[in-house]
Design a protein around this nucleic acid. Structure first.
Length: 466
RNA sequence: GGCGACGUAGCCAAGUUGGUAAGGCAAGGGUCUGCAAAACCCCGAUCACGGGUUCGAGUCCCGUCGUCGCCUCCA
């Protein structure tokens, strides 16, 4: 079997084959940095992180570009309201976003370009569009001429004549067609601006992505990703611009993730219906977020609420249980068990691969990992030795790693409290030996209230943070 | 109004070209334990509804109801 990918452009799955053998050029739309990113952004970034990790797992050399939109109306508005410099405001949220990605165990992009660093390339592109008759200048603004793009609407399945542009926004009478969109905007007073043949101004939203693609990945790319709310108009316009310039098909595969649903609605910055990544990470690990994301298909909406978060906290504990070491003094599990475990290793490897090959079916792949976890735990409780568990556990770690899970056993680093807790455990051990259970239980209960969980095993007691 | 997606057990959710429903969480029962915890074992759905095609449909077609996304900035 080989990898199949759903392509928004064709609305069907097809076999994946990159332009250049063994290499994948991939571009994912990053955030507009005017505020803290929320868990919906995290979802999108994670979805494509998993895509990237799986492609690497398959042996591809992946060139991964994620941009920052660091100049646009919202950033300018926000900065004006706060009385700060828009470029500095953007810079602040760029740094924060990079930290978010790190905390969420998202691999750093190969390149992380930002619009303001690409101004020269953008201006050249706009000039080329004008030269080709694909764009026109009006009073310092430059608009893309949609009627010139013969197959405009092919990505979103719209037809120009069917779109009732201007039904909700006032039509700019200077435009030739209401659907024409700005590729260059004349600057108003006090706004960040760059000199151009059309006077001081700044790039339109869509052109920067086209420019960064051309600059960093070339005329044609393999995968272009983003949230499905970007299909129209953003990606539609990117296609129109890029293809107007190169005359070649822009991206081979358009991948779009579903929206994260909070309270039954799309999580969105503009409506304030959101949970910032920072806030989420105060109470939960990045792995919990990731588990939620990979528990369902990337194209489906993601149900996000407290109940689901809690369920995934517990599910994560189950995954963690699989990589616990063999019991101390284990003398070996029955042959029947160890053989079953080895068989499960092969079932898991194949099942994982087949699932992921089918348009990155992470939820299906995860199912196999839970099956393997159960088999590992079963073997361990039957007395399997570390050696008997090693193949299964190695595969388990490898494949959870492909999904981007860290599975760190100790969420909190060693703290100064450790020695005291160890002391209390020793004390409790002595009390239990004397069968003074009232006191020993009190130690356990009160430590539990401080989020220290004690587990008794035949080899003694252990503890961990809740 | 237009375009698109979806509706699977209490909740989340998978289901490749149609052949008789993964997995997780919760609940319940059990093993282990001084009691717990963890782990392990057992336990649940005919797939929104109504038609149709087929030997056979969750999986294809039509209709109905419902939810969501896009059509305006948005991952």
């Amino acid at each position: 079997m080989s990898l199949r990918v759903y392509n928004t452009l064709t609305r069907e799955k097809s076999d994946f084959s990159p332009i250049e053998e063994g290499k994948v050029r991939m571009y994912v739309c990053g955030p507009t940095v005017y505020d803290s990113a929320h868990v919906g952004h995290a979802m999108s970034a994670m979805v494509f992180d998993v895509v990237r990790r799986y492609l690497i797992y398959l042996g591809y050399d992946v060139h991964y570009v994620m941009n920052f939109t660091d100049v646009d109306d919202k950033i300018i508005d926000r900065a004006k309201r706060l009385g700060v410099d828009p470029i500095e405001l953007a810079e602040k949220y760029i740094e924060e976003y990079k930290k978010n990605l790190e905390d969420l165990n998202i691999l750093p992009p190969t390149e992380h370009p930002r619009a303001t660093n690409e101004i020269d390339a953008i201006i050249k592109m706009v000039e080329r569009l004008i030269d080709k008759g694909a764009a026109y200048e009006v009073d310092g603004d430059v608009y893309f001429r949609v009627e010139k793009a013969k197959d405009y609407g092919k990505l979103s399945g719209r037809k120009l004549e069917e779109m009732n542009a201007g039904s909700r926004i006032r039509v700019d009478i200077r435009k030739e067609n209401p659907m024409d969109f700005a590729v260059w905007k004349a600057a108003k007073k006090g706004e960040p601006a760059w000199d151009s043949p059309w006077g001081p101004g700044r790039p339109g939203w869509h052109i920067e992505c086209s420019a960064m693609n051309l600059q960093h990945l070339g005329d044609q790319i393999d995968i272009h990703g983003g949230g499905n709310d970007l299909i129209f108009p953003h990606h539609e316009n990117e296609i129109a611009q890029s293809e107007a310039i190169t005359g070649k098909p822009f991206a081979r595969y358009w991948m779009h993730n579903g929206m994260l649903q909070l309270k039954g609605e799309k999580m969105s910055k503009s409506t304030g219906n959101l949970i910032p990544i920072n806030e989420f990470l105060e109470d939960h690990s990045g792995d919990v977020m990731r588990l939620m994301v990979i528990s369902s298909h990337y194209r489906s909406p993601l149900t996000f609420n407290d109940e689901v978060i809690e369920a995934n906290e517990r599910a994560l504990e189950r995954l963690l249980s699989a990589i616990k070491p063999a019991m101390e003094g284990a003398s070996g599990a029955p042959a029947e068990i160890t053989q079953k475990l080895e068989e499960q290793v092969e079932i898991t490897r194949k099942g994982f691969h087949d699932s992921m090959d089918e348009d990155f079916n992470t939820a299906g792949a995860l199912g196999y990992l839970f099956d393997l976890a159960r088999m590992i735990n079963q073997a361990r409780s039957e007395g399997a030795t570390a050696k008997e568990l090693v193949n299964a556990q190695d595969l388990f770690k490898e494949l959870t790693g492909v999904l981007g899970l860290k599975l760190e056993t100790s969420e909190k680093a060693a703290s100064s409290a450790d020695a005291f807790i160890d002391l209390l455990l020793d004390l409790r051990q002595e009390l239990r030996a004397k069968k003074e259970y009232q006191l020993s239980d009190r130690i356990r209960d009160e430590l539990a209230e401080m989020n220290v969980i004690i587990e008794d095993t035949p080899q003694g007691s252990t503890w961990h943070w809740e």
